[in-house]
Protein backbone atom coordinates (compact mmCIF):
# COMPACT_ATOMS: atom_id res chain seq x y z
CA UNK A 1 0.00 0.00 0.00
CA UNK A 2 1.46 3.35 -1.09
CA UNK A 3 1.74 6.07 1.54
CA UNK A 4 0.45 9.17 -0.28
CA UNK A 5 1.51 11.59 2.46
CA UNK A 6 5.00 12.39 1.02
CA UNK A 7 3.55 13.07 -2.43
CA UNK A 8 0.84 15.30 -0.98
CA UNK A 9 3.47 17.19 1.06
CA UNK A 10 5.68 17.63 -2.01
CA UNK A 11 2.83 19.04 -4.10
CA UNK A 12 1.67 21.32 -1.28
CA UNK A 13 5.21 22.66 -0.84
CA UNK A 14 5.59 23.18 -4.58
CA UNK A 15 2.24 24.97 -4.86
CA UNK A 16 2.91 27.39 -1.98
CA UNK A 17 6.47 28.03 -3.18
CA UNK A 18 5.33 28.74 -6.75
CA UNK A 19 2.62 31.21 -5.68
CA UNK A 20 5.02 33.10 -3.40
CA UNK A 21 7.75 33.07 -6.06
CA UNK A 22 5.37 34.55 -8.61
CA UNK A 23 4.54 37.43 -6.25
CA UNK A 24 8.23 38.06 -5.50
CA UNK A 25 9.64 37.51 -8.98
CA UNK A 26 7.39 39.70 -11.13
CA UNK A 27 8.52 43.00 -9.54
CA UNK A 28 12.07 41.68 -9.17
CA UNK A 29 12.40 40.64 -12.84
CA UNK A 30 10.72 43.88 -13.97
CA UNK A 31 13.22 45.91 -11.99
CA UNK A 32 16.18 43.86 -13.26
CA UNK A 33 14.99 44.18 -16.86
CA UNK A 34 14.64 47.95 -16.87
CA UNK A 35 16.90 49.28 -14.12
CA UNK A 36 19.98 51.20 -15.15
CA UNK A 37 21.67 50.56 -11.83
CA UNK A 38 25.12 49.11 -12.44
CA UNK A 39 25.05 46.73 -9.48
CA UNK A 40 22.20 44.69 -10.93
CA UNK A 41 24.64 42.17 -12.42
CA UNK A 42 25.56 41.20 -8.85
CA UNK A 43 21.87 40.64 -7.99
CA UNK A 44 21.38 38.58 -11.17
CA UNK A 45 24.40 36.42 -10.30
CA UNK A 46 23.13 35.92 -6.73
CA UNK A 47 19.69 34.86 -7.98
CA UNK A 48 21.20 32.30 -10.38
CA UNK A 49 23.62 30.92 -7.77
CA UNK A 50 21.31 28.06 -6.60
CA UNK A 51 21.44 26.65 -10.15
CA UNK A 52 25.15 25.86 -9.86
CA UNK A 53 25.85 25.55 -6.12
CA UNK A 54 25.73 22.08 -4.53
CA UNK A 55 22.38 22.00 -2.66
CA UNK A 56 24.33 21.15 0.49
CA UNK A 57 26.07 24.54 0.39
CA UNK A 58 22.74 26.36 0.21
CA UNK A 59 21.33 23.97 2.84
CA UNK A 60 24.27 24.62 5.15
CA UNK A 61 23.88 28.42 5.07
CA UNK A 62 20.09 28.24 5.38
CA UNK A 63 20.46 25.87 8.35
CA UNK A 64 22.70 28.40 10.09
CA UNK A 65 20.42 31.31 9.19
CA UNK A 66 17.20 29.57 10.26
CA UNK A 67 18.50 27.88 13.44
CA UNK A 68 17.81 30.78 15.85
CA UNK A 69 14.21 31.08 14.64
CA UNK A 70 13.18 27.44 15.35
CA UNK A 71 12.11 27.11 11.70
CA UNK A 72 14.51 24.24 11.08
CA UNK A 73 12.73 20.87 10.62
CA UNK A 74 9.36 22.58 9.99
CA UNK A 75 7.24 22.90 6.86
CA UNK A 76 7.65 26.73 6.97
CA UNK A 77 11.42 26.22 6.98
CA UNK A 78 11.03 24.05 3.86
CA UNK A 79 9.03 26.81 2.15
CA UNK A 80 11.74 29.40 2.91
CA UNK A 81 14.48 27.10 1.65
CA UNK A 82 12.50 26.30 -1.51
CA UNK A 83 12.01 29.99 -2.26
CA UNK A 84 15.78 30.47 -2.45
CA UNK A 85 16.36 27.19 -4.24
CA UNK A 86 13.77 27.75 -7.00
CA UNK A 87 14.07 31.54 -7.35
CA UNK A 88 16.18 31.45 -10.58
CA UNK A 89 13.65 29.15 -12.24
CA UNK A 90 10.99 31.85 -11.88
CA UNK A 91 13.06 35.03 -12.26
CA UNK A 92 15.14 34.03 -15.30
CA UNK A 93 12.25 33.16 -17.67
CA UNK A 94 10.40 36.36 -16.64
CA UNK A 95 13.57 38.42 -17.10
CA UNK A 96 14.18 37.10 -20.62
CA UNK A 97 10.48 37.62 -21.37
CA UNK A 98 10.66 41.30 -20.41
CA UNK A 99 13.92 41.77 -22.29
CA UNK A 100 12.48 40.25 -25.48
CA UNK A 101 9.65 42.82 -25.67
CA UNK A 102 10.20 45.78 -27.99
CA UNK A 103 11.00 48.90 -25.88
CA UNK A 104 8.31 50.85 -27.79
CA UNK A 105 5.57 48.87 -25.97
CA UNK A 106 6.54 50.22 -22.58
CA UNK A 107 7.38 53.66 -23.89
CA UNK A 108 4.10 53.93 -25.83
CA UNK A 109 2.19 53.15 -22.66
CA UNK A 110 4.14 55.84 -20.78
CA UNK A 111 3.43 58.42 -23.49
CA UNK A 112 -0.27 57.61 -23.06
CA UNK A 113 0.03 58.75 -19.44
CA UNK A 114 0.00 55.27 -17.86
CA UNK A 115 1.99 54.55 -14.70
CA UNK A 116 4.70 51.92 -14.39
CA UNK A 117 2.41 49.49 -12.54
CA UNK A 118 -0.50 49.93 -14.99
CA UNK A 119 1.94 49.35 -17.84
CA UNK A 120 3.31 46.22 -16.15
CA UNK A 121 -0.09 44.67 -15.44
CA UNK A 122 -2.01 45.66 -18.56
CA UNK A 123 0.67 45.76 -21.27
CA UNK A 124 3.83 43.86 -20.32
CA UNK A 125 2.58 40.77 -18.43
CA UNK A 126 -0.06 39.79 -21.04
CA UNK A 127 2.70 39.88 -23.67
CA UNK A 128 5.05 37.56 -21.79
CA UNK A 129 2.50 34.82 -21.08
CA UNK A 130 4.76 32.01 -22.41
CA UNK A 131 7.51 33.18 -20.02
CA UNK A 132 5.05 33.30 -17.12
CA UNK A 133 3.94 29.75 -17.88
CA UNK A 134 7.55 28.56 -18.16
CA UNK A 135 8.43 30.21 -14.84
CA UNK A 136 5.43 28.73 -13.02
CA UNK A 137 5.91 25.22 -14.36
CA UNK A 138 9.68 25.11 -13.87
CA UNK A 139 9.48 26.47 -10.31
CA UNK A 140 6.81 23.93 -9.44
CA UNK A 141 8.66 21.01 -10.98
CA UNK A 142 12.01 22.07 -9.57
CA UNK A 143 10.57 22.34 -6.05
CA UNK A 144 9.10 18.84 -6.37
CA UNK A 145 12.57 17.64 -7.37
CA UNK A 146 14.46 19.07 -4.38
CA UNK A 147 16.52 16.64 -2.31
CA UNK A 148 19.68 17.94 -0.68
CA UNK A 149 18.32 21.22 0.67
CA UNK A 150 15.06 19.75 2.00
CA UNK A 151 16.94 16.90 3.65
CA UNK A 152 19.14 19.35 5.55
CA UNK A 153 16.43 21.88 6.45
CA UNK A 154 13.46 19.53 6.84
CA UNK A 155 15.10 16.58 8.49
CA UNK A 156 12.89 13.96 6.81
CA UNK A 157 10.21 13.85 9.55
CA UNK A 158 7.31 11.58 8.40
CA UNK A 159 4.07 13.51 7.89
CA UNK A 160 5.73 16.88 8.37
CA UNK A 161 8.83 17.28 6.26
CA UNK A 162 9.22 13.92 4.55
CA UNK A 163 8.74 14.75 0.87
CA UNK A 164 8.39 12.32 -2.04
CA UNK A 165 12.01 12.69 -3.12
CA UNK A 166 13.15 11.81 0.42
CA UNK A 167 10.68 8.94 0.67
CA UNK A 168 12.28 7.24 -2.35
CA UNK A 169 15.67 7.33 -0.62
CA UNK A 170 14.14 5.99 2.63
CA UNK A 171 12.32 3.12 0.93
CA UNK A 172 15.48 2.22 -0.94
CA UNK A 173 17.51 2.14 2.29
CA UNK A 174 15.01 -0.26 3.83
CA UNK A 175 15.14 -2.39 0.61
CA UNK A 176 11.51 -1.57 -0.13
CA UNK A 177 12.01 -1.47 -3.90
CA UNK A 178 8.33 -1.65 -4.85
CA UNK A 179 7.41 1.50 -2.86
CA UNK A 180 10.53 3.35 -4.09
CA UNK A 181 9.65 2.44 -7.64
CA UNK A 182 6.08 3.75 -7.27
CA UNK A 183 7.27 7.14 -6.01
CA UNK A 184 9.98 7.30 -8.66
CA UNK A 185 7.58 6.47 -11.46
CA UNK A 186 5.06 9.09 -10.33
CA UNK A 187 7.74 11.81 -10.10
CA UNK A 188 9.24 10.79 -13.44
CA UNK A 189 5.88 10.84 -15.23
CA UNK A 190 4.95 14.15 -13.62
CA UNK A 191 8.20 15.92 -14.51
CA UNK A 192 8.21 14.62 -18.06
CA UNK A 193 4.59 15.67 -18.61
CA UNK A 194 5.04 19.25 -17.37
CA UNK A 195 8.18 19.80 -19.45
CA UNK A 196 6.42 18.37 -22.49
CA UNK A 197 3.50 20.76 -21.93
CA UNK A 198 5.81 23.77 -21.60
CA UNK A 199 7.60 22.91 -24.84
CA UNK A 200 4.35 22.31 -26.70
CA UNK A 201 2.80 25.56 -25.48
CA UNK A 202 5.91 27.56 -26.32
CA UNK A 203 6.05 26.03 -29.79
CA UNK A 204 2.44 27.08 -30.14
CA UNK A 205 3.36 30.67 -29.30
CA UNK A 206 6.25 30.24 -31.79
CA UNK A 207 8.59 32.37 -29.73
CA UNK A 208 12.23 31.54 -28.93
CA UNK A 209 12.23 28.67 -26.46
CA UNK A 210 13.07 30.04 -22.98
CA UNK A 211 14.25 26.59 -21.87
CA UNK A 212 17.10 26.48 -24.34
Amino acid sequence: MTDWQPLWLSFRLAFITTVLLLVISIPLAYWLAYSRWRGRAVIEALISLPMVLPPTVLGFYLLIALSPSHLVFTFTGLVIASLFYSLPFMVNPLLSGFKSLPPALREASYTLGKSGSTTLIKVLLPNIRPSLLTGIVLSFAHTIGEFGVVLMIGGNIPGRTRLASLAIYDELESMNYAAASTYALILFTFSFSVLLIVHLVNHHFSKPDPLS
Binding site: P102, L105, A108, N127
Partner: peptide, 27 residues
Protein backbone atom coordinates in the same frame (compact mmCIF):
# COMPACT_ATOMS: atom_id res chain seq x y z
CA UNK B 1 6.83 61.07 -19.59
CA UNK B 2 3.48 60.07 -18.07
CA UNK B 3 2.74 63.62 -17.00
CA UNK B 4 3.75 65.30 -20.26
CA UNK B 5 0.73 65.85 -22.47
CA UNK B 6 2.12 64.19 -25.61
CA UNK B 7 1.03 61.96 -28.44
CA UNK B 8 3.88 59.92 -29.88
CA UNK B 9 3.82 57.91 -33.09
CA UNK B 10 6.83 55.59 -33.00
CA UNK B 11 8.64 54.45 -36.09
CA UNK B 12 7.76 50.83 -35.25
CA UNK B 13 4.32 51.97 -34.01
CA UNK B 14 4.47 50.38 -30.52
CA UNK B 15 0.94 49.03 -30.83
CA UNK B 16 -0.15 46.62 -28.10
CA UNK B 17 -0.25 43.21 -29.83
CA UNK B 18 -2.59 41.55 -27.30
CA UNK B 19 -5.42 44.02 -27.92
CA UNK B 20 -7.71 44.78 -30.84
CA UNK B 21 -7.52 48.13 -32.63
CA UNK B 22 -10.49 49.32 -30.58
CA UNK B 23 -8.87 48.32 -27.26
CA UNK B 24 -5.60 49.99 -28.27
CA UNK B 25 -7.49 53.26 -28.72
CA UNK B 26 -9.61 52.80 -25.59
CA UNK B 27 -6.48 52.32 -23.45
Amino acid sequence: TQRRSIGFVFQDFGLFPHWSVYDNLRY
